[in-house]
Amino acid sequence: MNTVFLLVMLIGTAGWITSTVSLRVRSLQVQADRTERRLALLLDHLGIEEPEPAGMDEVRALIREDRQISAIKAYRRITGAGLAEAKLAVDALAVRLQKN
């Protein structure tokens, strides 16, 4: 009986800790997103463009060769971006290249 009680208490405590940490992580993510948006607005207001990472010529060449997946992989390797962010960036770059 005593062991079952301790086990239930341990599981309950683990659940509480997990939910508390998850809430804190979500809160920090919201703060980081807000900070990124504010920084982007500030850079736009000041007319400052973020410098292009070295190696983007490789990404452009892959796009011109119609090798989108390889371009996304190269973009991720160069910038450290996630898959969704890299796909959006490569798609936007492809549109810009088609206009030129």
Rank of each mutant, 00 (worst) to 15 (best):
M1D: 13
M1P: 05
N2F: 12
N2Y: 11
T3I: 04
T3C: 01
F5T: 11
F5W: 13
V8I: 02
M9C: 12
M9L: 10
M9F: 14
L10F: 02
I11F: 09
G12T: 02
G15Y: 01
G15S: 04
G15K: 00
W16R: 07
I17A: 15
I17K: 02
T18M: 12
S22V: 08
S22L: 12
S22C: 03
L23S: 15
L23N: 15
L23Q: 14
L23G: 11
L23R: 15
R24G: 09
R24E: 11
R24N: 09
V25H: 03
R26A: 05
S27T: 04
S27I: 03
S27G: 13
L28N: 10
L28D: 10
Q29I: 04
Q29L: 13
V30W: 00
V30K: 14
V30E: 14
Q31H: 09
Q31R: 15
A32R: 14
D33K: 12
T35W: 09
T35P: 01
E36C: 11
R37F: 06
L39F: 07
L41N: 14
L42T: 04
L42P: 01
L46E: 14
G47Y: 12
G47W: 13
I48Q: 08
I48D: 06
I48W: 13
E50Y: 00
E50D: 04
P51G: 11
P53N: 03
A54W: 02
G55R: 06
M56E: 14
M56R: 07
M56K: 06
M56I: 09
D57L: 09
V59W: 00
V59R: 04
V59M: 03
A61T: 04
L62Q: 12
R64K: 07
E65C: 03
D66L: 05
D66P: 06
R67N: 07
Q68H: 08
S70P: 02
S70Q: 10
A71G: 08
I72W: 12
K73V: 03
A74I: 10
Y75S: 04
R77N: 02
R77H: 02
I78F: 01
T79S: 08
A81W: 00
A81D: 00
G82K: 07
G82C: 00
L83C: 05
A84H: 03
A84T: 03
A84M: 03
A84C: 01
E85L: 06
A86G: 06
K87I: 01
K87W: 01
K87P: 03
A89L: 00
D91F: 08
D91I: 07
D91E: 14
A92W: 01
A92S: 08
A94D: 10
A94V: 02
V95I: 07
R96T: 07
R96A: 11
Q98G: 12
K99D: 08
K99N: 07
N100T: 05
